[in-house]
Design a binder for these strands. Structure first.
Length: 173
DNA sequence: TAGGCCATCTGGTCCT
DNA sequence: AGGACCAGATGGCCTA
């Protein structure tokens, strides 16, 4: 994995003044766009058969586009904040280099598995039944754990997997 | 220079 | 109807 030492990478975002340039879309872009549409229509005939509904002027459409771009940006920022929060609660990872998103998810998954197996080991697989579970002897946690890991996965293996992964991430950086 | 990661744009679809 | 969500495309930045 690589260290991202760069500052905040910011692609220029389209501003309102760009409205004036809307007519200046290159032919190349239009071509690519129509190819994309074709491809999608093949996969989703439902969309292809839908009548075009364009109640707005092109300027209005452009404005609405800019607004949804902004909303999408905000949404992605929230998603990235959540990733950051997740990074911060995964212990023992290299602090100097940021984990990539895929690393974060993979590590988190194995960390959760490892914690779960630790809990189960400490309680000998007999946690108090969850309220309302009805079945009694087996906790939902235990059942879920077995569904995810299979009966033959040893808790120690989970822990091993997790620490191996941390180690390999450190090496890779 | 190739490849990985990321931010942004975009249009379709789903949901409220 | 409009916003949220999603996936594909594109291009920038960085490292090996």
């Amino acid at each position: 994995m690589k260290a991202k030492s760069k500052g905040v990478k910011r692609r220029h975002t389209v501003s309102e003044d760009a409205l004036c340039q809307e007519a200046a879309q290159s032919r190349d872009e239009l071509l690519k766009c129509s190819r994309r549409k074709e491809k999608r229509n093949k996969e989703s005939p439902k969309a292809a058969s839908r009548p075009a509904k364009l109640p707005w002027s092109s300027r209005d459409r452009r404005l609405r586009r800019l607004e949804s771009n902004e909303r999408e940006r905000q949404r992605m920022h929230k998603l990235n904040n959540a990733f950051q929060a997740l990074r911060e609660v995964i212990p023992h990872v290299r602090a100097e280099n940021k984990l990539s998103k895929i690393e974060t998810l993979t590590l988190a998954k194995n960390y959760i598995k490892s914690l779960t197996s630790t809990i189960l080991r400490m309680s000998n697989g007999h946690l108090p039944p969850v309220e309302g579970s009805g079945s009694g002897s087996r906790s939902k946690l235990y059942e879920h754990y077995q569904q995810q890991c299979g009966e033959d996965d040893e808790p120690a293996e989970q822990l091993q997997k997790y620490s191996t992964q941390i180690h390999s991430f450190r090496q890779g950086s």
